[in-house]
Amino acid sequence: MLEAQELTKRYGDQVALDAVTLSVAPGEVFCLLGANGAGKTTTIHLFLGFLSPTSGRAMVNGLHVAAEPLKTKQFLAYIPEQVDLYPHLTGRENLEHFAALAGGKHSASELRSLLVEAGLPEESLERRVGGYSKGMRQKVGVAIALAKKAKVLLLDEPTSGLDPQASNEFSRTIRSLSEKGVAVLMATHDLFRAKECGTRLGIMRRGKLVTTVAAGEIEHADLETLYLDYMRS
């Protein structure tokens, strides 16, 4: 569903991403781990077509992102670290707008159901987003992904800054989506959360995907040791 083939991004002499090859199958949650500047966000931005690769290919559902950026986006949903919404609109209005941008038409009750499904309290749906917490905005982001019925979910540090309860709820949502066959690529610093909801974990360092490991085959403590070893080397 999601495939990077020798994906490389350079800014002059600086290598942001160095021949990364990975694939994420439907129902899989691939977590990219790594320090700041390791290339996690760049990978996601290349899949979104926000950046053009220097070389290599980013493929979504068999389509080349650089060649068909709009078509590939039909299959994608994206939740960044900060889900920035329009503060003067309500949660429902924000969802309605972003869903419309994807070509979707939903009734008000459908929109409300999606927001509730994403975990937003019912009483907050018609409140302006300007008063929402970060966790609530993330939930609107999830609702946007749900409304799109995306086959691929790209998550960029989605739990950063969330309280443990909100993080936990978020992990559950991701797992539920992957169970429905959604392929998830998640960039995160949070080893615990990655181990909890990921099916495969990749460690990135200086633009390279240095190793990948199945989440079920490694313990939390071992993952931390492995991560720190790669960071030090």
């Binding site: 979104l48 926000f50 709009l70 986006k73 039909q74 994608l76 949903a77 994206y78 960044p80 900060q82 889900v83 920035d84 919404l85 329009y86 972003f98 869903a99 941008l101 994807a102 070509g103 982001g141 946007i144 799109k148 790209l154």
Partner: peptide, 18 residues
């Protein structure tokens, strides 16, 4: 700057339509 543009772009809207 606010980040809403990338969220909109990720939805697959044409920028000319926007």
């Amino acid at each position: 700057e606010r980040g809403t543009l990338r969220l909109a772009a990720a939805q697959g809207v044409r920028m000319e339509t926007l």
